[in-house]
Design a protein around this nucleic acid. Structure first.
Lengths: 212, 212
DNA sequence: CGCATACCTGTTGTATCTATCCTGTGCGCA
DNA sequence: TGCGCACAGGATAGATACAACAGGTATGCG
């Protein structure tokens, strides 16, 4: 009945709850509560909390509980800066672009257009992430891969809902992706990094709640 | 008697053992062994293993045990590439250098010279790391700070003993640090990143066991 | 009335116990 | 002799029980 391990279930539960803001920043979770909520004992809960702390989503206070870290301006700035660093590096390294990469990115971009046309905004988000992850992966550095996944997870907490409120942003988003792909195909490292820079920098605006 | 928590003790024990190569790559550790070795129960052992897996030092195989990851050529390349990325970024951002930073680096460099003169190679290593960490920290990005610490930990497994075998390398090492500091003081971002690049790239040679 | 202390509650830290799963080994059968 | 299956050993995964600790509150003393 329970194919996935209990520890995994708890991990996913807490992570989703935190990322979807169901557990708000500043909230103090206790192992007992979580154990009861998911229906397992405290042992796997403990494991999950440990992993989440390393990922920077929560902070464990001994004898007190697990504090859901509120998103700070500092964190937003750090995530954006690190994304820029990693993605620009990957983009520069992806020139000249291998045929397999170009093909994958084209496919993802097409999928994204379909999803946008169908109005499935959540799916667009997922594909968007896959697009960027593909570029990072092409750099062939596993450390950066893992780091990038963490960055994207963290970013989920920083107001993805904004895209829903402004659907016209999606068109611009897709256009920027196309721009990145073009630069990669053209074999122009400067243009590629510049395109990535513009695209990723937009996230920074979320800090001020600005959407343009 | 035991001021530090048990989980912390186990963590430190395993980490040191792995970093100092007392637990070699490819070795399969079991919770029971470790628990007995440190003198605690298996629960804190599990916690420690979890943390170490996230840090990339070991890999947990369900129902089998904890495999001490052997250092691969891929890992060395990844660590060096990521160090270059982070440190060059930090160096570029550290221009113009704040007075406090320059002061700190000068102090560390002086300490390093003393330690080298005293023949305390282990201490030189520690100070070397602090020097680089100070530059990274000056970028004010906590994500990069944490990442950098992990990178240095991993690097410890990749043959620090080499420095012991070739003490003349230390002189060159110090000279390169001085070079970095000078470039920062001069306010020349290109020179600073170039100096960092040369300095960090040297680690790559460890891959072939080459020391020059 | 003010302060220090003792207690009480809730939470984590650690230990121990049980069940499940994986792996390798050895036996039996074709 | 070769293949497959059953079984046993050992390890983790998870549950539970217990101990230690932190913080707040109430109480007693000066």
């Amino acid at each position: 009945m329970k194919q996935p391990p209990a520890a995994e279930r708890v991990y996913a539960h807490i992570k989703h709850a935190v990322l979807e803001r169901r557990y708000e920043g500043g909230m103090l979770l206790t192992e007992g509560e979580l154990a009861e909520a998911v229906g397992v004992s405290r042992t796997p809960v403990r494991e999950a909390l440990l992993r989440l702390e390393v990922e920077g989503l929560i902070k464990l206070y001994p004898k007190k509980g697990a504090l859901v870290l509120p998103v700070s301006a500092q964190e937003i700035a750090d995530v954006v800066e690190t994304r820029l660093l990693v993605e620009e590096h990957a983009a520069r390294k992806a020139v000249p672009a291998p045929a397999a990469l170009v093909e994958e990115l084209e496919s993802l971009l097409a999928t994204m257009r379909e999803q946008a046309a169908a109005g499935d905004l959540a799916a667009v988000s997922v594909t968007d992430r896959a697009f960027h992850a593909a570029i990072v992966r092409s750099a062939g550095n596993q450390i950066l891969d893992r780091l990038y996944e963490q960055l994207r997870d963290r970013q989920l907490r920083m107001g993805v809902a904004v895209m829903h409120a402004h659907p016209d942003r999606i068109a611009k988003n897709i256009a920027e992706h196309a721009e990145i792909l073009e630069a990669l195909q053209a074999g122009d490292p400067e243009a590629a990094t510049a395109a990535v820079h513009r695209h990723v920098s937009w996230v920074r605006n979320l800090a001020q709640g600005d959407v343009r």
